[in-house]
């Protein structure tokens, strides 16, 4: 029983992290219609920035988080304006955009290595010394923060996209940019904002799981790949699907490796990905994204 609870708690943490990452994938797809491959590297950046502000510079945690989000938002905005928009303007084939995204990811990864070093670092405890007991298991306070904040972000994002004017404008711009422009939506600005938002979400994912998994170069790549599978599972491009898919992925991975064999831990994500791509590419929420592609 203890084992089940342990696995459940761990799966929730992992699932929430995946959920946030999947959300950021879907956000970018919804707003620019492209599969972004830079997200994992942006996540690493988010984690390292948070680490720099909090552990290295000693700023209070909420300020560190805020600063990181601001910096990452600007980065996302800049990428959209500087790179993506120019590519779209020049009417290049989607293939080129994908390749450029790969290149960008590579550049970000190496820049990160140059600036932050390639050695894994420890993200200081947010509330040092505090140990929480949950159903007999010792849980890090950071884990509770991670789950709590993730769920909060997901809920806020849903509210934002559906109930606010800006969110509606984003959805409209992604549905039909020309129509959106015609009703008065500044599509150019909105696209930049969407990217900025997506980057911020994934940076948040990075900061939240930094204290739990330690901050390293491979953080983003490893989690990003599996979160991608989660996004496909839920329906690529669908916001709710991303959350469901991410959570599901976390649970599948944890329970399979806990009860069947740890050999399959990473493999299971890719098996799920391939399965869904072949059998049900629209995912659980029946999102048409991948069929169109």
């Amino acid at each position: 029983m203890l084992k089940f609870v342990t696995l459940f708690i761990s799966a929730t943490i992992l699932g929430c992290t995946y959920g946030l990452i999947s959300l950021s994938y879907s956000l970018i797809y919804k707003s620019s219609g492209m599969m972004a491959f830079v997200n994992p590297d942006l996540m690493t950046w988010g984690a390292f920035l948070g680490f720099t502000f909090y552990t290295l510079m000693g700023l209070p945690y909420p300020i560190a988080v805020l600063l990181t989000c601001v910096v990452m938002f600007c980065m996302g905005f800049a990428i959209q304006k500087g790179v993506v928009r120019n590519l779209i303007k020049r009417n290049v084939t989607p293939m080129y955009i994908t390749l450029t995204m790969f290149a960008m990811g590579y550049i970000l990864q190496n820049l990160s290595q140059l600036i932050f070093g390639s050695v894994p670092r420890k993200f200081d405890s947010i509330i040092p010394g505090l140990k929480i007991q949950l159903a007999g298991i010792q849980v890090q306070p950071e884990a509770i923060i991670c789950v709590g904040v993730s769920l909060l972000i997901m809920a806020l994002l849903q509210f934002f996209m559906n109930k606010t004017k800006l969110g509606t404008a984003m959805r409209a711009a992604s549905m039909d940019p020309m129509a959106a422009e015609s009703v008065g939506v500044d599509v150019s600005l909105i696209s930049g904002l969407s990217w900025g938002l997506s980057t911020t979400v994934i940076a948040a994912a990075g900061i939240l799981c930094g204290p739990i998994y330690s901050v390293s170069m491979v953080l983003g790549a490893n989690l990003g790949a599996k979160a991608f599978a989660g996004a496909v599972l839920g329906g690529y491009g669908n916001m709710i699907g991303a959350i469901i898919g991410g959570l599901a992925m976390g649970f599948i991975e944890t329970f399979v490796s806990g009860y069947i064999s740890s050999d399959y831990k990473s493999l299971i994500a890719y098996i799920v990905l391939i399965l869904f791509l072949f059998v049900k590419p629209t995912g659980i929420m029946n999102e048409r994204a991948i069929q169109d592609v």
Partner: peptide
Amino acid sequence: LSGHKITA
């Protein structure tokens, strides 16, 4: 001017 400004 871009589209949204003209609409405005």
